[in-house]
Design a protein around this nucleic acid. Structure first.
Lengths: 329, 329
DNA sequence: TGCGTTGATGAAAACGTTTACATTTTCAGA
DNA sequence: TCTGAAAATGTAAACGTTTTCATCAACGCA
């Protein structure tokens, strides 16, 4: 049997109120009582039951975090940032992954809500129209989106569209005219759509006709053969812009295996800024995001919101362009 | 104001006990009452407060997960496995990272204990002598170690020593005689020690004298110059066995930058089996572990323990040797 | 001495559930 | 119609805290 505050009180010869005060507001307790309580706590190995405390306080100190997957290091790094900032702000992290599935998004949000997390940090499929986010607003549960970018919601992200356009422009400057874009399912990710928009912007600004996006499952372990065909066939593109680095790496592998030279035969540009990309051969050029920062800043802002009750505006963090061997020889 | 079971009872014209039963054991409630309750729940948007339930039941449905870092994809993949298995078993995951620091291990365990998690999945510095693990045993809190390997505790891991020895043997078979080992701080990781033992085993079995381990901080972003010196200097090794893939990748980068050829000038062998290693140039040879499986199996076993009350034995999963360009031309 | 202020303490209520136990209702069989 | 068992329901306690409110002692001051 694990000791409760009642046992401590009895052992120390004081009331449970005094024990509670000794724990939370020691200055309101006589020195004699304090040391009696300390002794009793040590003797019994008492540790306060947070569940009781949370029920009474109607606060859990929990932050619900919902991300698509941890297999993509982008989200793992972001989570790392969240966790570090949560520790600093004395919150704990309850984690759920969705694997880009709507039913899992719903289940996760429901669970987090039932668990009475104080706030949430989320990446959802489509921030703009999302019934559950509206529900969070109604319930006035503080939340922050990460990676999603949407005027009507509190987000921490880069400017996906502008960043993508800048990346594609980098390819255009190198003389590419036939540039394809590969992306995870647009329907599963508003970021993917925004990045595709950025691609279109840059193409049109150069007087070119943007291609249709070549879609592929976000979590697929390899490229479908017919896609490989389009990238290696007779009218293949001279450059490929990939909606994220994971895809870019898959593409690089497949094309290299098919005997294409990168970047001479085809240039590859990613999006995310995964560190590991720098170590590939050739090094992956990419539009980089500050992943750990995205998480940490989101947590900081959420903390501010929880502290002040003031909803905070979105935050757009700077992106970067990391040049590398995959786009210039 | 968010609705409670009491509001639902009032709205439905029944007692709270009936509402509770309608929720948990619907077969013990008349159809009339069931539908009245359902209607009330829908009307009020009631969602059961898990905190109240957890307090009453003395069960939280939470699994505490403590890992060194998520920046190393090994642990991110493992966490992914844990999360997936936790979902299947209807548990939720509370995450804490330690960054290989003893004070953070202690803080995390304390927090998880206070939060009354039903069980824990942990990677600790040293499984064998670890006061807090002893404490868990005393409190009979079910837990499973991952990556740690220790006869006296419930672990899910590979056989680190044998795996390392097999990897090093692979190098020996290729004619290497001067093989160095680079590792994270041995004092921060029993796995590192076991892998070093395996290295020594293999070297001695070949009649060679094992070198001292070259230690480096687990989380350092680059190699210290003096270490680079030893790897590139006049009596440099012809092969380097790295205690984990992350280190191996750092080593590869540095040595390539110094103009050494891999594997002609120096062969590199990692440990972990990170997928990304296959995409490097040259592809990283490594001793592979089934990371997601380690997490998933640990969670399954923990679930079994929680269900049955029976502590389960350790599980040693098979390792593999992934050959690659970093050890053979 | 008497009074008011301050500081320490305790009793009890409250947070939202589940469940043991008691009570009421239903219904089949005589 | 009556009886008894079974089914449905309700009352109240319990889980471990925090906090309000009341009580009481101590003490300074007139």
């Amino acid at each position: 049997m694990v000791a409760t505050i009642k046992d401590v009180a009895q052992q120390a010869g004081v009331s449970i109120a005094t024990v509670s005060r000794a724990l939370n507001t020691p200055d309101r307790v006589s020195l004699a009582a304090q040391s009696a309580v300390q002794a009793a706590i040590a003797a019994l190995g008492f540790r306060p039951n947070l569940i009781g405390r949370q029920l009474r306080a109607d606060k859990t100190g929990l932050i619900g975090v919902m991300l698509p997957t941890l297999s993509n290091p982008v989200f793992a790094e972001c989570l790392q940032g969240i966790e570090q900032a949560a520790l600093a702000a004395n919150y704990r992290v309850l984690l759920m992954t969705t694997h880009y599935r709507a039913d899992r998004e719903q289940h996760a949000l429901e669970t987090l809500l039932n668990q009475r997390v104080d706030g949430m940090i989320l990446t959802v499929a489509h921030a703009a129209q999302h019934a559950w986010l509206d529900r969070l607003e109604d319930l006035s549960v503080p939340y922050m989106l990460v990676y999603n970018q949407c005027d009507a919601r509190p987000c921490v992200s880069v400017d996906n569209r502008a960043a993508a356009a800048q990346g594609v422009t980098e390819l255009l400057l190198r003389g590419h005219r036939h540039i394809a874009m590969i992306s995870g399912q647009l329907q599963a990710s508003d970021r993917a759509q925004q990045r595709y928009q950025g691609y279109c912007d840059a193409m049109r600004a150069a007087g070119l006709v943007p291609g249709e996006p070549l879609e592929i499952d976000f979590e697929s372990a390899d490229l479908p053969p017919e896609l490989v065909g389009r990238l290696t066939g007779p009218d293949r593109p001279t450059a490929v812009f990939c909606g994220n680095d994971r895809l870019a790496i898959l593409v690089m592998r497949r094309l290299l295996a098919r005997g294409l030279r990168i970047p001479q035969d085809v240039a590859i540009l990613g999006f995310d800024g995964l560190e590991i990309g720098e170590l590939l051969a050739p090094a992956l050029a990419t539009v980089s995001q500050p992943n750990a920062d995205i998480g940490a800043r989101a947590m900081e802002r959420l903390h501010g919101w929880l502290d002040s009750g003031q909803r905070l505006a979105s935050l757009v963090l700077p992106h970067g362009i990391r040049r590398g061997g995959s786009i210039h020889a």
